[in-house]
Every structure is written in structure tokens, then in C-alpha cells.
Amino acid sequence: MRSYAARRAVNVVMLSVTAFCAAAALFSLFFVLGYIAWRGLGALSWAFLTRLPKPAGEAGGGIANSIVDSAKLVALAGAIGIPVGVLGGVYLAEFGGGRLGALVRFCADVLNGVPSIVVGLFAYALIVVPMKGFSGLAGSVALAVIMIPIVLRNTEEFVRLVPHALREAGLALGVPRWKVVLRIVIPSAARGIVTGSLLALSRAAGETAPLIFTAFGNRYWDSGFLQPMAALPLTIYTYAISPYDDLHRQAWAAAAVLMIFVLAINATTRLALRTQAMEAR
């Protein structure tokens, strides 16, 4: 048996090591954020946000079309993915006890684990190949496939958290089950469902891999969903691997824009969920 002093020394040393690990993890976050701010914020300007890209090799230009197209892509993805995810999640929470529920849950977990590049491959085979061309539609479908399992499991979780007593109260008033679910259960879980959907949207907004060979990228305004469309993460990627310093500078500025957007959604929704959890306690 080791002496008490030795054991205590081990205790102090090892616990300090764990504190150091946590500090390192936090440092990496601050390093990432600080580095983006340092390289990106300086290159940001009003013109950068509102202009179109210049031809390759020419300095200047902006990312206005990428921002607008990104918003369009994510909006369509949300319009497809959120209803499917929310209603499917309500099914799992309310009626998903049996084998069918287990199957749906299993498939959602499988989809959730599929690498985003493979989802892109799927959208490519499903839409780009038959339609013989890259399109924003294919990009949105890929993003929707990524969103659905996230929204679904999140919705299930929050609908499950609604106390059983509320369902009983509704039923005991002589309200049919479907109305109880739609008018009492879902509104009670609304905050969680909305924040979860927002998080899924922000995740989709940051995805690059599934867009490379679906939305493909575009340098002009007003691209429709049946044409190639630009996307902010895609622009960052193509600029980053280009040989021009000016495009590198623009990639950092675009990264700062994307980061601000993603952080804003994440911080506010997670804080909202947290305060809700506090209130529930």
C-alpha cells in the first residue's frame, strides 16, 4: 500500500492534468474564433458583402450571390426537411412504441450517421444524373436529408418531455386524441422543436461536402433552383484551394461571415434551451 502522501500527490497531479485538458479544449475554441476574427474581420467590408465575384485573377469583388444562394438553398432544405422531421418525430413520440417505431428510429439513426459526402453522392445519383445537370434543387435535397434525422429525433425528445398529465387533461375534457396532440402537446413542446430546427438549419448552412457536386457553385445573380447555385461554404472552399492571395483573403472574410451566422444561431438557441431547462426545474 502506498503512503497517504504519495496517493495525495498522485491525486493532485492527475486532477491538474484533467484541468489542463479542459483548458486545452477551451483554448482550441478561442484559438479558432480568434484566428478567424483576426484574418477575416479585417477583410470584411460593405462592398464585399454586396458585390458579385470578379473574374479569376482580378482583385476585389464580393460574395453577395453566395450569401443569397446559401439562404435560398437552406430555406428550401428547411421547407422539405423540417415538416418531415417534426411530424415524423411527433409520430415516434406519440405512437412510436411498437416495431414500426423502432424501425423508423433505426433508420433515422442510420441516416444521421451517414457522412455528408455520401448524402451528396445520393443526391447526385437521385437528381443530378437524371436531370443531366448540377442544380440548387439537388443541393437542397442533400441538405434536407441531413436535416431530417436531426429534426426528427430532436422533436421526438421534446414531445416526449411533455408531461403525460397534460394529455390526460385534454382527453378527459372530451377532446379527441389528434386535437390533443396538435393543440396541447405540440404547442407545449414548441420551444424545443423550434430551437432544434434552427440548430439543424445552422448545421445545413455550414455544410460543404454535399454541395460540391450538387449545387456546384455559381458566380452570378439570380440562379434558379434548376441551375447550379452558389453557397457560402462552397465559396470558402474553392477560394481557399485557389492559388490567388486575394481569394485567400476573401475566403477568410467569408469564413468570418459564416462563423458569425452559425455562432449567433447556436448561442441564442442553446441559451434559450438552457433557460427553459432551468424554468422546468
Partner: peptide, 30 residues
């Protein structure tokens, strides 16, 4: 169940509704 009402062990007002809406809920939802 509209003819045979029920009150449970723990108070279970609908948390997303006002006092008025809680009382009105049975009438409105039906």
C-alpha cells in the same frame, strides 16, 4: 368524456395557455 369530467391528482393546467384559455380549452377545442 364531455359528460363525465375528471380532475387528476396533481393540478395539470395547460402551461402554454392563459387562465382564460385553460377554462375555455374544452369548449374551444371541441
Amino acid at each position: 368524456r364531455r359528460h363525465v369530467g375528471m380532475v387528476f391528482q396533481r393540478p395539470n393546467p395547460f402551461p402554454n395557455m392563459s387562465i382564460f384559455d385553460n377554462v375555455a380549452s374544452g369548449l374551444v377545442l371541441n
